[in-house]
Structure formats: structure tokens, C-alpha cells
Simulated assay, not measured.
Amino acid sequence: MSERERRTARVDTPQEVRRQLIRRPSGMSSETFGVLSEKFARFMGTPRFLIWMTIFVTVWLAWNTFAPQSAQFDPRALNYTLLTLILSLQASYAAPLILLAQNRQDDRDRVGLEQDRVQAERALADTEYLTREVAALRIALRDAATRDFIRGELRDLLEEMETKGLEVRRRENDAAADEVDEAPEGPSPRW
């Protein structure tokens, strides 16, 4: 016998065989059952359910208290045993169904929180990336000329050109004035 066969043939080693005690109906998936349990849990939490349950219990108690002894099916003398049994049975089914609905809601909340966390991480990464890009642009723009700087330089150039233009005109006017002073005073020859 090989080592592997000896290990699998041991009596004290549990075998991994799962058997279902109750077979699930062929048309009922766990998702369908979960949806039905959520609908049931939602219905049990409505005022409509409470009103109908109150009416049911009130009619039951009134019938079995005030009806003739022969018509009572759950007499007061036996402390409404059947009503107690029915309410206990309803509670014994309601509690697990409500817990199942809560577990499904917890699972949905967990998935939603996980998606929110992933989205928040993405948003944080995008924000950090954009912050780095803006910082890099600021650093790059320190060396670049801004609009105000260019306007100021153009104003300075205009003023400089105007002052040079005035100087040139002044020189031209002075030169013209010197020519007028040097010209003979007699009539100018005509050709």
C-alpha cells in the first residue's frame, strides 16, 4: 500500500463529503429565496402588516372568548393555546427570514462601501496627480513671461520709442533750424 493510500484509508481522518439534509427545490435558487425573504421582511415591517395582525389576533380572541362554547376552537379556558402556537410559529419563521434579509443588506452595503472606497482611492490618486501637475506648471511658469510682464515691457518699449522719436524729431527740427539760419537771405534762384 502506498503512502497516499494509507493516508486516505485512515479511519480517524474525516472525509470531505458534504451531504445536504434537505434538498432544495429544483426551481428555487438561493438568490430567489433571498429576494422572497427580503420581500417578506419588508412586508412585516409595514403598518399594513401590523394592522392585519392586530385585526387577526383581535378577531381570534373575540371569537374564542365570546362565541358559544361549542363554536370555540381555541377556548379561553386553555389560555388560547392554538393562538400561542400560531404566533410562536410565525415568529420562529419571521426571525430567520428577517436575519437573512439583514445579511443580504449587509452584503450589499459591504459591496457598496468597497466600491466607494475604491472610488475614493481613485479620486485621491487623481487629485494627487493633478496637484503634482499644477505644482510642475507653477515651477515652469516662474521662468515664463506672464501677460502683465509682457504688457509692462511693451509700455517701456513704447515710451522708449516715443522718447527716441521725440529726440529724432528734435534733432531734425534743430537741423532744419540750422539750415534756415545758414541759408542766404536773398531770393532763391529759380531754374
Results as ranks from 00 to 15, higher is better:
2 S>T: 10
4 R>E: 13
4 R>K: 10
5 E>W: 08
6 R>E: 05
15 Q>R: 13
16 E>Q: 07
17 V>H: 07
19 R>V: 09
20 Q>I: 08
21 L>R: 14
22 I>S: 02
22 I>Y: 07
22 I>C: 06
24 R>N: 09
25 P>Y: 03
27 G>M: 05
28 M>S: 00
29 S>G: 05
29 S>N: 02
31 E>G: 02
31 E>W: 03
35 V>S: 08
37 S>N: 02
39 K>A: 09
40 F>M: 04
42 R>V: 01
43 F>N: 06
43 F>T: 04
44 M>G: 04
44 M>E: 04
45 G>H: 11
45 G>D: 07
46 T>W: 00
47 P>S: 10
48 R>W: 08
48 R>G: 05
48 R>K: 09
49 F>T: 08
50 L>Q: 15
50 L>N: 14
54 T>R: 00
55 I>C: 10
55 I>P: 01
58 T>F: 13
58 T>P: 01
60 W>N: 00
60 W>T: 03
61 L>S: 00
61 L>H: 03
62 A>L: 15
64 N>C: 06
64 N>F: 10
65 T>N: 07
66 F>P: 00
67 A>G: 12
68 P>R: 12
69 Q>V: 13
69 Q>L: 08
71 A>G: 10
72 Q>D: 04
73 F>C: 03
74 D>I: 00
77 A>P: 01
78 L>H: 10
79 N>H: 15
80 Y>G: 00
80 Y>W: 13
82 L>C: 08
85 L>E: 05
85 L>A: 15
85 L>S: 13
85 L>Q: 04
88 S>E: 09
89 L>Y: 01
91 A>S: 15
92 S>N: 05
93 Y>W: 12
95 A>K: 14
95 A>R: 15
96 P>N: 11
96 P>E: 04
96 P>Y: 04
97 L>C: 15
97 L>M: 15
99 L>I: 11
102 Q>M: 12
102 Q>D: 11
107 D>Q: 08
107 D>S: 07
108 R>G: 00
108 R>H: 05
110 R>M: 11
111 V>T: 08
112 G>F: 05
112 G>V: 01
112 G>C: 06
117 R>T: 06
117 R>Q: 11
120 A>H: 09
122 R>Q: 09
127 T>H: 14
129 Y>T: 13
136 A>M: 03
136 A>E: 07
139 I>C: 02
139 I>E: 14
139 I>Q: 15
140 A>C: 05
140 A>F: 01
142 R>C: 02
146 T>Q: 06
146 T>G: 14
146 T>Y: 03
148 D>C: 02
148 D>S: 03
151 R>A: 10
152 G>R: 11
153 E>M: 07
153 E>W: 02
154 L>T: 05
155 R>E: 15
156 D>G: 00
156 D>V: 06
156 D>N: 04
156 D>E: 09
158 L>R: 08
159 E>R: 15
161 M>F: 14
161 M>K: 14
163 T>R: 11
165 G>T: 06
167 E>D: 13
167 E>P: 00
168 V>F: 10
169 R>G: 01
170 R>E: 13
170 R>N: 12
170 R>S: 07
170 R>G: 03
171 R>S: 07
171 R>F: 06
173 N>K: 12
174 D>I: 13
177 A>M: 15
177 A>S: 14
178 D>M: 05
184 P>W: 04
187 P>Q: 10
187 P>T: 04
189 P>C: 04
190 R>T: 10
191 W>G: 06
